[in-house]
Computed example of a mutant assay.
Amino acid sequence: MAATKSTGTKSSKKSAVQKTVARKSGASRNVKLASSKRSKASHAIAAKTPVARDALLRVAAEPRLSVGERLGLRSSDDPLDLSSSVALVVDQETNEILLSKNDAAILPIASLTKLMTGLVLAEANLPMDEQITITQDDVDTYKGSRSRLAVGTTLSRGEMMHLALMSSENRAAHALGRTYPSGLQQFVRLMNAKAKQLGMGDTRYVEPTGLSSLNQSSARDLVTLVSAAYEHPILRNLSTSPSYQLDVGQRTLQYNNSNRLIRNPDWDIGLQKTGYISEAGRCLVMQAKVAGRKLIMVFLDSAGKRSRSQDAERVRRWVEAQDFVPTTHRPQG
């Protein structure tokens, strides 16, 4: 916090100096004050110049653009008017595509990454009762996100996986990769090797949590990942657990599933994972039984905390109302 306050003080002093110089020079006034995007005075003055005004409007609008909008993804072929820029719904047993929207777009996938983290660990057959301790290396340096797992907390590998898959616990996911027998770098290599083995050509991982926006994939690849992960009972059980209580020292911590649909009786979900970072928007993958069919759903780059769940609800109701005739199949290989 001290560093933040110091930076803010320096910024304020710089802004004050710029304003003083600006009063002495009409020509420099617009340039110097426009460079201070946080200053209301600079916005008012720059707005008088068309070029500066347009630049400021672009800056102001940029954070509100979704990933899909920034990449120019088309919203055509979207009969449900979904909030997600990317969506794909596939019949798990027949590979029939029921709904597709920008399914080839390659985007950041946030904590959907943890599904591959879990898959690599599940296939490694490591002891789930082995104790793992959170260290300073597990503290998030990408986003500065918070965690209730303090440095020094020791849990079993199984508990770490439970928190990572159910509640998207970043320190737990990082600790799982860091403590892999061959180390973190080898663990990430195994994540990418598994993606290649599964034919996930659009996918790349650089770390096991999803906090880095360089972890990227497409909806097509994520359908493949969900299908592979579904084969492991431990991933199905941990990812769909509604809640989990954890005793840490003298405290009891209550963790809840990050997917609110898990607690909805209208849903029969076999596996799921949520994700969010600003670069990826709200993301969700699920295997769920709808209208007697086992479906895999992928939603990427959705805006708003509940929009991904609302998109899933739209799809569920739509599928329940349809009498599908197989016409389109997902490409093999």
Rank of each mutant, 00 (worst) to 15 (best):
A3N: 14
T4P: 00
T7R: 14
T7K: 14
T7I: 15
Q18R: 15
V21S: 08
K24Y: 12
G26L: 14
K32E: 09
K37H: 10
K40E: 02
K40L: 06
S42I: 06
I45N: 04
A46K: 02
K48G: 10
V51I: 13
A52Y: 12
D54Q: 15
A60E: 11
A61Y: 08
S66R: 03
G68F: 01
S75P: 12
S76W: 12
D81G: 08
S85W: 04
S85P: 03
D91E: 12
K101P: 04
K101Y: 07
A105I: 01
A110M: 06
T113F: 08
V120L: 04
A122D: 10
A122M: 09
N125V: 07
D129N: 12
D129C: 04
T135R: 10
D138K: 00
Y142L: 08
K143Y: 10
A150T: 05
T154S: 13
L155F: 04
S156W: 09
L163M: 06
M166S: 07
S167G: 05
R171L: 01
Y180A: 09
S182Q: 14
Q185N: 13
Q186I: 08
R189P: 02
R189S: 13
N192Y: 09
K194T: 15
G199M: 11
R204G: 09
S217N: 05
T224R: 10
V226C: 07
I234K: 07
R236T: 10
S239V: 10
S258A: 13
L261R: 11
R263K: 15
P265I: 03
D266R: 12
W267I: 02
K273D: 03
I277A: 02
S278K: 13
G281Q: 07
A288W: 03
K289G: 06
R293L: 06
V298T: 03
V298K: 00
K305P: 03
R306G: 06
V315R: 00
V325L: 15
T328P: 06
